[in-house]
Amino acid sequence: MPFLTIFRQNFADALKNSVPTNLPNYSREDRWVNQLGTRSSREIETRVEMKSALNLDEPDDDNLKDLENAIRVHKSLQQLTPLQARDPRVWTRLAHSDCWKYMRARWPVERWEKDGADKAARNVVERYFVARSDSRALLRNGIARLWWTAQLTYDSTRDNPYELTGVLLSTLDITQQILERNMGRGPEILTGFLEFLLQNRSELLIGGDKNRERIRSLAKALNMYGGVCLLDCLSQTDIIRVLSAELGRILAKETKTPQTNKKPSKVLA
């Protein structure tokens, strides 16, 4: 199997700074970045072995294929250490080269261009590069987010070690609610939260806006609970117990104030 190749720092920096002028290139189907400079001025080969080629599935109308692709990226790059996996040079090159076809299908620039070139450029930087040194930027890059979500939720004790990865990636909103809050980096907190969603699939995972609101309320409540309690010291069972109590409160509140889609009838004075 090949070794992982990364961009040189100078090249990655120059590419990022050139996004506004390069914007039309992000609509191209070919891997145009490979035509910039010589190969050795552009990239270097690391000693990290890739276990398999990164042939990612392209999303279709019904399935974004995030889970399948997260597993594929994680299995291929299972040797990466956290220190290596936070390196923007890795993900910037994969997004522009090995995984270009996938990136074009999953994060097409055309989606943002209708809101103007500035916004399109900002989104390209966010999805094709690692814009800043914090964790949120890492979770926005189109390829890094796949590896990291799998890494943070991988559980070798389960029959399907990627079961919780599937929960986390079932909607973008769950990722934002839990992973983009600091508490989501605590392993027991994250797995406890996802296990709770799995155990309450019908109330939380299947359905539309109502369940999304419930998940938001649960994440917010857990975060507030962490204001007085050290969540990191709780077991997965403790986290599930806290969330169960909160879900009970949410459901009871909904019963008391039933929501209706009907418009209120006019009251005549």
Partner: peptide, 16 residues
Amino acid sequence: VLHVECSNTLYRRAFE
């Protein structure tokens, strides 16, 4: 409890 957090590597652990 020693609580260690590194945003750069998404590391967060508590040691008792």
